[in-house]
């Protein structure tokens, strides 16, 4: 094999080595990029599909809801509480010292129009659906919502007051399309 050529051809061999390394490097890099590009569709296919995304926003007509009435709608397979609050409920919600709250949040930060409270009806503790939607349901000491699973209690702004839940009921993205209709999501 290559014996006497070594010393004299050292320069040429050096260049050849560099060329070979570049070839391996370029191919390796391209192969890695190819592998990543090939893996991407496999991973992305597990993300929500088009039909799931199409159902990811719901429009709700608010006109049949009376003052003081609370309704539940489905959004992204989850319950969403829509409450048309009475003046007393709004007052109670606004007149709260934020220092008292486990998860401090002003009522104004949780509603777009004070009369309408829109929130995801899933307890932030371990995921049960709190009671309080029906007039006969227990509503807890703050007249909001009461979770029967472990006793979390929410006020008329959906903020956690007592019990093991760490955070206020989640406000979903929503927008008023008109005064009497809202799109959630």
């Amino acid at each position: 094999m290559a014996t006497s050529a070594e010393t004299g051809a050292h320069g040429a061999a050096g260049v050849a080595v560099k060329r070979r390394d570049f070839l391996y490097l370029a191919t390796g890099a391209m192969g890695a990029v190819g592998a990543a590009l090939a893996a991407w569709p496999l991973i992305e296919s597990m993300n929500p599909a088009a039909d799931v995304l199409a159902l990811s926003s719901s429009e709700v007509d608010l006109s049949p809801i009376q003052v003081g009435q609370r309704i539940t709608v489905k959004w992204r397979s989850q319950p969403v509480f829509i409450a048309r609050r009475t003046p007393e409920e709004i007052g109670e919600a606004q007149k709260v010292d934020l220092e008292e709250l486990r998860d401090p949040q002003a009522d104004s930060a949780r509603v777009k129009k004070p009369e309408w409270l829109v929130m995801v009806g899933i307890c932030t503790h371990l995921g049960c659906v709190p009671l309080g939607q029906a007039p006969t349901d227990p509503r807890g000491d703050w007249h909001g919502w009461f979770c029967p699973c472990h006793g979390s209690q929410y006020d008329t702004s959906g903020r956690i007051r007592k019990g093991p839940a760490p955070a206020n009921l989640v406000i979903p993205p929503y927008a008023f399309l008109t005064d009497t209709s809202v799109r959630i999501g």
Binding site: L23, Y24, A26, T27, M30, G31, G34
Partner: peptide
Amino acid sequence: LTGLLYAI
């Protein structure tokens, strides 16, 4: 890529 693989 196949061209590069052939060169290698």
